[in-house]
Design a protein around this nucleic acid. Sequence first.
DNA 1: GATTGACAGTATCATTCGATAGACATAACG
DNA 2: CGTTATGTCTATCGAATGATACTGTCAATC
Lengths: 230, 230
Amino acid sequence: MTLPANRYRPNARQRGEDTWRRILDTALALFAAEGFDGASTREIAERAGVNLPAIQYYFGSKEGLYRAAIAHVGEQVVQTIAPITARVWDSLGSGTPSRAQLIKLLCELVNAVVTMFLDETLPDRENRSLFVSRVEIEHAAALDPLNEIMRQHLLAPGAALVGRLVDRPAEDEQVVLRALMILGQAKIFGSCSVVRSLGWNAIDESRVNSVQSIVNEHTRAICRALKGPA
Amino acid sequence: MTLPANRYRPNARQRGEDTWRRILDTALALFAAEGFDGASTREIAERAGVNLPAIQYYFGSKEGLYRAAIAHVGEQVVQTIAPITARVWDSLGSGTPSRAQLIKLLCELVNAVVTMFLDETLPDRENRSLFVSRVEIEHAAALDPLNEIMRQHLLAPGAALVGRLVDRPAEDEQVVLRALMILGQAKIFGSCSVVRSLGWNAIDESRVNSVQSIVNEHTRAICRALKGPA
DNA sequence: GATTGACAGTATCATTCGATAGACATAACG
DNA sequence: CGTTATGTCTATCGAATGATACTGTCAATC
């Protein structure tokens, strides 16, 4: 086949890195806006200012490009949430954290979700929300990693915290359901239609803070009502 | 053009009603599973056991069929929620309901969302969840009615109830945000990936009741913490 | 300075899609 | 019976799409 050995980005430091990056950025926006089927390679190439076969050259196929875009979003999500997740596991692993600490960590977890969906100082905010929403309805295998990230970095630590609060295992169904609902309060802001219906064209810091303080209030209220095993 | 006057279902009692219905049912399932672009008219026709032009004959176009499917889902959603919504407006319009009544109505509203997404005794449960999820990411105009239904029958009465509880107008941003978050707890169960990750292949009545009792507990806890204007 | 490999560009292929043309069948109705 | 409206079928069109074959360009390397 005589394909160059470094196709599909094995070593990035080459002449074409600009092109590679431009394609990825454009694809990210277009896939987010139009979905996998909706975004045509021709439009991606045109907006990125490259020719059509460049996509196959750099990413192997349209699906390869999609995977790369998803991976990029996944990294951003991990960067936003991983620090809090790590602190949760630390607290739960070492010693016996107080109820106040558990609740505080849960609030931070919820805040991270809000930040991920609403904070426009982070890059690609809208694309991130859209991809995370797509996880739920597009069966595309390329979206699985993102789904797994959300499960491991949000639901799992959330359930672990709630489990401690009600003195039950984190795998207990009631515990998982409670964690899902608490996180659901924040996840609703991943919906573009919700953000749009709020009339929020720009999302400044005060709005993010406002959402976080309210969702923290709710989370604390829920946790306060959580006594030992029912 | 000599088109028959009763095209596109003006009067339904004709010979072709079976065909019409079979196309709509098949399309409902396929559009839900694959999206508008993903579901081809050829596959719809094949699975419905009709020929390809039958879709244009009965629904004018693929988009017409999509609209019909959305409208059908919309009616189901309205049927599930409208009774509770009506009771909310009744209570708020006549007299001054007690806090306990307001909270009870809010719980019923939230329960309706859970029912809508999880109750498998209602027809087309999964299709309904998928369409509602698609509302958030597909800009298709055909989905707007569904979006509007959710806003008028869930968010608006929810915000009205919360507004009374905190003694603020229903349009107040903080009030709307609180209502969104409370409903978000239930809305998370519209996510197929969530239901799947719970390992719930079948959703029996006990599971629905379990979810509802927990979400009611949370909602009451949140409302208890809601005192007059901050 | 010739060669080689990384990249860019043009032209084109094969497939799939929604839609339509137009023939055919059948039931309703005078 | 004959006409007309209603519904079904086969065949096909035109457009859009992902992918590829092939050529051209240019910098690095020996």
